[in-house]
Amino acid sequence: MSAWAARRGAAIAFAALALGAASVAGADREAGRRKAEVCAACHGPAGNSVDPAVPSIAGQPAQFVSTELFLFREGNRKDPRMSPIAAGLSNGDLNDLAAYFAAEKPAPPKHGSAPENAAAGPALARKFNCVQCHGPELLGQQHIPRLAGQQPDYLLAQLRGFKAGTRADIDGNMTSAAHALSDQDIQVLADYLAGLNAGK
């Protein structure tokens, strides 16, 4: 490219900027920390839940956190406590909260799996393809949550909800994956997963 062309290119770039393609603020972890103060009442300190029915969100993949908040806000996923909280949040809020929770460290699980479930769990997690998306250590990735060390009653309720078709997911994959599970499988998996230490 000649110097003339380079100058012309710069002029075009300047014109585009001058038109002010409104830029979007990036995810702000510190802003997320402030916005997350209300979350601790149910989700525990830094998103480490101590309630077996409430999920831990500390150390979850950022895209998973923003996606679930999005699904609550848009009404795909419904919960009497979460839906009204999510209703007033902007996309920027969701990205800030996701950045904050993703950077927090998951606490070691308080739950102890029954020995027979801990023994049977790994084979079930392979058989029903959990590890294929949630990862070999079940730590989650991208829009897919960490299952290791998640609260057991929450896991039970979600798997039963997916199987019943009442729990929304963005692409239908979990709904169809859960079709293959018996309720006995669900109980074994929930107990096994809740006892895995995500922090190790």
Partner: peptide
């Protein structure tokens, strides 16, 4: 272990 990807439904900033 091949799996589909999902978009960031809340968008991401170009910067």
């Amino acid at each position: 272990t091949l799996h589909p990807f999902a978009p960031n439904l809340t968008g991401r900033a170009a910067k």
